[in-house]
Design a protein around this nucleic acid. Sequence first.
DNA 1: ATTCTTTATTAACAATTGTTAATCTGCGTT
DNA 2: AACGCAGATTAACAATTGTTAATAAAGAAT
Lengths: 182, 182
Amino acid sequence: MKKIKPILALLRNVKSRTFQPGEVLITEGSSNKELFFIRKGLVRCFYINSTADEITFQLFPESNIVLNFHTLLFDEPSKFVYVAYEPTKAYSIDYDFLMKLTYENAKFLELNRSFIGKRAIKQAFMRIESLVFLTPEERYIKYLQDYPNIVNRAPDKYIANVLGITPVSLSRIRNRMANRKR
Amino acid sequence: MKKIKPILALLRNVKSRTFQPGEVLITEGSSNKELFFIRKGLVRCFYINSTADEITFQLFPESNIVLNFHTLLFDEPSKFVYVAYEPTKAYSIDYDFLMKLTYENAKFLELNRSFIGKRAIKQAFMRIESLVFLTPEERYIKYLQDYPNIVNRAPDKYIANVLGITPVSLSRIRNRMANRKR
DNA sequence: ATTCTTTATTAACAATTGTTAATCTGCGTT
DNA sequence: AACGCAGATTAACAATTGTTAATAAAGAAT
C-alpha cells in the first residue's frame, strides 16, 4: 500500500474553524484531543471552583496553541472550559493523527517538537518563573510586555486571575503604577 | 549498514553517575543537554539574583528528571545551577542522542513522550495550577503531599523559595498550622 | 435616551506577606 | 565543653493582599 505524502496528509486533516464569542472549543469533562492554532481572536480557558465562580487560567490570543492539557498530558478529562471571547478563527488538527504522522515521518518530529510542544511548554516554564520570582506588580508588567494590548481586549478580572491575584488587587496595582509615573 | 538495535544503543549511552553534596550537575551559563534521572538523593536547582542571593527554583528527589530547560526548550544557556544537595546517584543520557534514537525508532517516541516529556511537563503544569489557584499555605500543604518527607531532607528556606514565598513567611505558616491543629 | 447588567474603582478592615533584626536552636568543629 | 555558624523562629513595622461592600463607570439591551 502506497503511503500518502505526509504533508498532504497533514493538510487534509487540518480543519479551519470559526467560533463566535461564547462558543466552546473544549468543554469541561471532555477528552477532546484537538490542537487549535489560533489565527485570529481570543480564547479564554477557565476553571469552575467549588463556589461556581469562574477563574480564568489562561488567555490565548493570535498565534497561540490551545490544547486540552489535562487530557494530552494526564490522560484525564479536562478540568477547564475553553471558550472564545472574541470572534475567533483557528486551525485544528487531531493530536493522535499528528502523532501518527510524527511516528511515520521523522521530519514531523522536529515540527512537532519545535512548534507545538515547545511553544506551550516554553510558555508554561516562563510562567512558573514569573510566579515564583516576581511580585504581582512585576508579573503584571511582564504580562503586558508578553501580551501587548491584551489589556484592551480582555477584562481586568480575567487578567487578575491569570496573574494569581484578585481583580481588586490588580486595580490597586494599576493605581499605584499610574501615581508613580506622574 | 546494519542498524544497531535501538535498545542496545540506548543502554550503551546511558551513564551511571554519582554526585557528592555540593557537586554541580549543570552550571550557570552552560548549554548542557544531558537528561538526568535521579535514582537516589536530592538535587537542587537555583537562580542567582542581582544581589547574589541564591533562590531555589526546584528540588528533585528520587525518580525525578533533571534537565536544563533553558537550553532544551529555549536554546539558551542555563540561568540556573543544578547541584546535588544529598549524595546522589543518577542515570544520564545525552538529549540529542535520545532524540536521534527517537527519530529512528517509533517505539522510542512513545517512551520519550510518556516518560521524559510528560513527567517534567506535567509537573510544570501542576505547579502553575498550584501557584495560580492556591494560597501559599495551601501550596505548602500540597507540596508536602506531593513530596512527602522532603521537609526532613531540605531546609525550609529552599522550600519557601520553591513555593514563591520568604522563609519567614513559611515559618509563620507552619506556626499557624500547628496552632490550628491543637 | 433610558434602563439593566457587568466591570472597575474606591473604601474600610482583617489577614497575610515582606523586610529587617534579634533571638533561639541545632550541628559540627575545635 | 566551649565556640562558631547556619537555619529557624519570633518580633516589630510597613506594605500588600484578600474580603466585603458601596460607588462609579462602561457596555449592552430595550
